[in-house]
Simulated assay, not measured.
Amino acid sequence: MSRKLAVDLPYFPNLEYFAALAEADEILLCSGDLYQRQSYFNRTKIRLANKIETLSVPIQGRRPRIPLSQIKIDNQQKWLNTHLRGIQSAYGKAPFYEFYFPYFEQVFLGEQESLWDLNLEVLTICLKLLGFPVKMSVVHTLENKQGLIDIRGQMLPSKPFMHRDYYSPVPYFQLFGLDFEPNLSVLDLLFCEGPTAKSILLKSVKKH
């Protein structure tokens, strides 16, 4: 029986996100979902030498409750350079940085106007690099929920991952610090562990 999930579309998703969909055959992404403040839709976390840094994509306007597909990136702000410098500073010396970074650099250089389109492109690349054979479908709304597991809106920055049933951290090599920092952006895992990223994620799936 196929396992189908309705999931959010974060910006460079964290490890909990991939642990949640690791055993899925298909994921549904709903472009008609309404924008929620304080979500992962426009933010991710990376590890710098002396702190955990949140990278946020600036959004145009006052951001009323409109569909995610209508959210526009504020490209007048210099966020792109900030993110590129941050990622290079955090992972430039990581073992697999030079191998994986060009995939993401192409996305950044595309100068997307739609945050939905940017995130969709990022997720597509991440699934490919991780070797996750999951089918990805974009729908406007969920018409038929039969046989569907809906986890949209569950993973929020304000709610620790320990309170949910998806991710149990498995430590891996990180560049900075003595203590392992769990649930960072998937960039952290890819740049530091490369081809073993998938097996680490599969071991991180919380057992019930």
Rank of each mutant, 00 (worst) to 15 (best):
K4Y: 00
L5I: 14
D8P: 14
F12S: 04
P13C: 13
F18A: 07
F18S: 05
A20N: 11
L21M: 14
A24M: 07
R37N: 10
N42W: 10
T44K: 03
L48Y: 06
K51P: 05
L55P: 00
S56D: 05
P58V: 13
G61M: 11
P67S: 09
P67W: 09
Q76P: 00
Q76K: 15
Q77D: 12
T82N: 10
L84A: 07
R85A: 14
Q88G: 02
A90N: 07
G92S: 10
A94F: 05
A94S: 14
E111C: 11
E121H: 11
V122G: 01
I125S: 07
L127K: 14
K128I: 08
P133R: 08
P133L: 11
K135Y: 03
K135N: 13
K135P: 01
H140S: 14
L142A: 07
L142C: 09
L142W: 09
L148D: 08
I151V: 11
Q154D: 01
L156N: 10
H163M: 10
D165P: 00
D165Q: 08
S168R: 13
P169K: 03
P171H: 12
L175I: 13
G177W: 14
D179P: 00
D179I: 09
F191C: 04
L201A: 12
L201Y: 10
L201C: 12
L202S: 12
